[in-house]
Simulated scan of single mutants.
Amino acid sequence: MTPSSWSERFVTRDGVRLACRDWGGSGPDVLLLHGLAGQAGEWDDTARLLRDSGHRVVALDQRGHGGSERHPEDVSRAAYVADVVAVVDRLGLERPVLIGQSMGGSTALLTAAAHPGLPRALVLVEAGPGGADPGIQKQIGGWLRAWPVPFPSREAAVAYLGGGTDPVGEGWARGLDERADGLWPRFDPEVMVRSLDDHAARAFWDEWTAITCPTLAVLGQGERGGIIDGEEYAEMVRLRPALHGASLPGAGHDVHLERPGILHRLVVDFLRSDALQAGPHTPCLGAHSNS
């Protein structure tokens, strides 16, 4: 592989093929999990930085997304968690750090709760235990179905998906499938809506309290806004006082696209600190420079 390249790997679980970007590298293992309607390529900048700073890095296209099976029958939270366990096992990842954004953060959280011996640490990017949200499927489904596809050009896709924020638009546009008639999403909106069934029905606070590994929560505070408000974060800290936190003014929900360099620095500092040692830790929700 060249210094900036990755190789494609496949894992099949219960007949569902899962595609992974294996960035190689040596050192502590990292598994990256994208959000709803996303794909592994969103993590390219972060993956490259983590690999070059001494980690073995793999990014997974979760079921229903990207190069993985687009129409899996089972899109429950349990299925996503089982996929992570299978990828970790079959790609030989040893107690990886699970890093997930949005729905990928939910997958990471639930994996850490159900399999406490699997992750070395957990990094949640714009993700938390949340609360039951019966309206989420209508909201997200309406947005996804409204995409004016096919996009006639990459520029049109960036403008629409980024809303004027180039890194976000570029990140989303990288995941589109180029066909003869234009650029198409690499997911089915109806599959995405079904993937939200569990989120519409319940919160995951019991799972949150079951997590035993060191955890870092990274929140966006930009104009586009983050999804974890102060009340939810305060409850996360109350239930798990050892939680480490960081907020990024100027970044929104897609922190990994808007500020990959800063996110990388936060993760590396977290993993190199005493956060992974035994003993209590003081939670810190701090503002970090965008430079």
Rank of each mutant, 00 (worst) to 15 (best):
A114K: 00
A132M: 12
I227L: 14
G245W: 02
L18H: 13
D29V: 08
H34M: 05
P119K: 05
F187I: 09
T46D: 04
R272C: 11
L183Q: 14
L276P: 07
V193G: 00
R17K: 15
G142L: 07
D197C: 00
G128Q: 08
R63W: 14
E231R: 10
R174W: 04
G286V: 14
R202G: 10
G226I: 06
Q62N: 10
G252T: 07
A113Y: 02
L144G: 10
E232H: 12
G117L: 01
W143D: 06
G261M: 05
I136S: 03
A159W: 03
L50N: 03
L109G: 06
S102Y: 07
Q277I: 03
E170G: 07
T209H: 02
I211Q: 09
G24D: 13
G163P: 02
W172L: 13
L243Y: 00
S53C: 07
A210D: 14
Q139S: 08
W208H: 08
C213D: 13
M192G: 05
L263M: 08
W205K: 05
C284P: 00
F10H: 15
A210V: 05
L176K: 12
V267I: 15
L49F: 07
E223W: 03
L110V: 04
Q137C: 10
V255T: 09
E258Y: 11
G142E: 11
D89F: 00
G92W: 12
Q101H: 14
V158Y: 08
G66C: 05
G220C: 12
M1E: 02
G64N: 11
R120S: 10
A114V: 01
R51T: 13
T46L: 15
E235D: 15
A47Y: 02
L33I: 03
